[in-house]
Amino acid sequence: MDTQWPRWEVFKQDTPAKPHQAVGSVHAADPQHALLTARNIFARRPQAISMWVVRAEDIFSWTKEELAENPPPEAAKQTEPLAYGFQPLTFCVFRKTSHKRSMTFVDYVGEVSASSPEDALKQAQQQFGDVEALAWWIVPTDRLAKSDPGSETVESWFAPATDKTYKQQQYYATIGSHVSKHKLGRETDDEE
């Protein structure tokens, strides 16, 4: 069957001080291809220093509304055997806390060790309960594919976008002003 390939959610980290944030998804065939694709799509402009991808179907998600209506079963009562190899597992926890206008969804907040995704959620609620969560994403850590953190990769994948000034609206600064103030051509050749 002809498909558009599986969907992978993409997490982008803008600076070392910021968490990985869910920016959208890409369609790709395998983990490495998904990472390369994510770079092409979500690092066309600055800023980025790291990217993670995970198959959309490997994400466990709950919104505040869902949790209010259907609290997840107690971890202890969890009888479904996990499809993963060993236990306990590590899970990455992502959380959304604001309705404010934004171009990203959940933020990475940390890792928990748990016996199931539901157990991971419970632990996340305890460990990261400082702010009310509007949505949670729980991802088995071993399902995440990550860009190489080495400086050569960071330079090669993410740094060049900063030089592509022609994609920034600031590059066309005089265009916003009245036509009479608008210069014909640029004084200096700022080519690359």
């Binding site: 558009q4 390939w5 890409v26 369609h27 790709a28 390369l36 694709t37 092409n40 799509i41 066309r44």
Partner: peptide
């Protein structure tokens, strides 16, 4: 062949 590759 696929939208992602137009971008790439």
């Amino acid at each position: 062949p696929i939208l992602e590759e137009d971008i790439a």
